[in-house]
Structures are given as structure tokens and as C-alpha cells.
Design a protein around this nucleic acid. Structure first.
Lengths: 125, 125
DNA sequence: AATAGACTTAACCATCTGGTTAACTATTAC
DNA sequence: GTAATAGTTAACCAGATGGTTAAGTCTATT
């Protein structure tokens, strides 16, 4: 697993993983409507408060949420650039995917000979 | 129904989870350049073939990749709509987040004293 | 000071993940 | 038919994840 391609890999891992949980997404949706405290965030979701706190920590580590402790409250809000790297990655993929049209020629040339595709001598023979 | 922005929750769960793994993202990047077989996909990634197959299955379930078995090969390609629901969700969140400025009034009215939120103005720091 | 409120930490638990190897099936080549 | 190729399934494993309850800390109130 020694692959370090880009420095942002870990970061994207964490961001996508953070977004893969419906509870966390609903927290983000709630925060998109305005800041809230931990106990305000726990109300609409049916989990325990420590459970919710864990989610908030995860969202924080993914830089989707920022929090500050003020008195005995922790103010949580959506990070200004929340989701930027995610949509950047998706857009990048889509660009390649669309740009692929320019390269489709290659592929077709390589494959079109047989619809079954099994015989072009690719792979590791 | 101010609740959910995007398609089915479970579906988004699976999609984001699928994207949260760097190996799977690199598979997608590879497929964005053009279709490939399982053994072509396994080459650049250093994991076992069954390991890679698992990733492909996950990407398939997330509807990010489509595959067809042709002869003894399995042709894998990026799904046409890959990432659409993801960017829809992120964009939806961002819209709320920006639209929040219009609703700040509501929020301030609702919050009166200082249960949370701390600041009525907006701004980034 | 004592109590209540709002988190926070700790400990624990079931399940899910990502990975492996070994053995098996299905196609194609010889 | 036998062998090679390409993929599939099964069994297993360590570690991460999402959740819990119980107890502890820090602030604000009385």
C-alpha cells in the first residue's frame, strides 16, 4: 500500500467517508441553515449525545464543520469551503470522462475487431 | 419537507462510501480514461485480484461503474451518470449555505437571547 | 457552595471494511 | 481433452466504525 500519489488523498478519504453517513449529512444540512450547539444538533437525530459528538468530530476532521467552545456551549457551523474538494474531484473525473471522447478512437481501434473483445492481446500474457 | 435534498439516502451512503477509498477512486480515474477488464484494472494497483474485484463490486453497487461479462472477460466502464447524485447533494448543500443569508433574520429572531450561535452577523473568521 | 446544564471521556460492543489465500468455475487455446 | 487465462467464491482476519452507557469536567446559576 505504498502508493502516495497525491497529498490530498487522505484528506479526500476522510471527507468522502464523513459524507457517507446519513446522520452526518443531516447534521450538515442542519448547519447549512445556520449554526447550532451540540445539543441543538442532537435533538432532531435519534442518537445519544456522545454519539452525536463523535459525528461532529468526524465532520471537523474532514474540515466540513468548524466548532468553537464558548462558555459551556460548543458552537458548530458549516465550514466556508465545505465540499469544495469533493466537487473538485468529481468535476475532475467528469472532465476526464468527457475528454475521453477524444481518446475513444484509440479504444475502438483496439477493441472493435471483435465484439467479444477477448482477443486483442492485452493483459499480461 | 425541508429534510432531504438529494436522492435516496441509502444510495448516497453507498456512493460516498464507495468514493471514500483511494483505491476505488483511482479505479474510477483509470476508467475515466476508457473501459478496462478486471485484470487491466488490477495491474496499476497493488492488491490481489479478488481484492480488486471487491472494489469493482462496490463501485457497481454505488452505480459509479457498469460492467458486462463478455466471454471470460468482464468489461468495466465508468457509469454515464457517475457522480451526478454526489455533486447534486453537494451543490444543494452549498445553495442552502449561501441561501442561509436570506434566512438569517428568521434564525436571529428565533434564537433571541443566546442559546447558541453566538454571532448574528456573518463572516468567515 | 451546591446544583444544574452542556458537553467530554472512557469503556465496551456488534458489525462492517479491506485485505488476504486457496480453491473453484468458465472460456479459450493447443 | 488438457492446459492456460480470467474471473469468482469462500473462509478468514485485523482494524475501523457507529453506537451505547456511565462517569467525569467545566460553566453558569442560585
Amino acid at each position: 500500500m505504498v502508493k502516495s500519489i497525491a497529498p490530498a488523498r487522505r484528506s479526500l478519504d476522510r471527507t468522502f467517508a464523513a459524507l457517507s453517513d446519513a446522520t452526518r449529512r443531516s447534521i450538515l444540512e442542519q448547519l447549512a441553515a445556520g449554526p447550532a450547539s451540540i445539543s441543538e444538533l442532537v435533538a432532531p437525530v435519534e442518537i445519544s449525545l456522545p454519539g452525536l459528538l463523535k459525528h461532529v468530530r468526524i465532520l471537523e476532521q474532514a474540515r466540513l464543520v468548524e466548532t468553537v467552545k464558548v462558555g459551556r456551549y460548543r458552537h458548530c457551523r458549516l465550514a466556508a469551503e465545505a465540499g469544495d474538494d469533493v466537487s473538485a474531484w468529481v468535476d475532475g473525473l467528469r472532465e476526464r470522462w468527457e475528454g475521453r471522447l477524444d481518446r475513444v478512437e484509440q479504444y475502438v481501434t483496439n477493441r472493435r475487431a471483435r465484439p467479444t473483445g477477448g482477443r486483442e492481446g492485452k493483459g499480461k500474457s
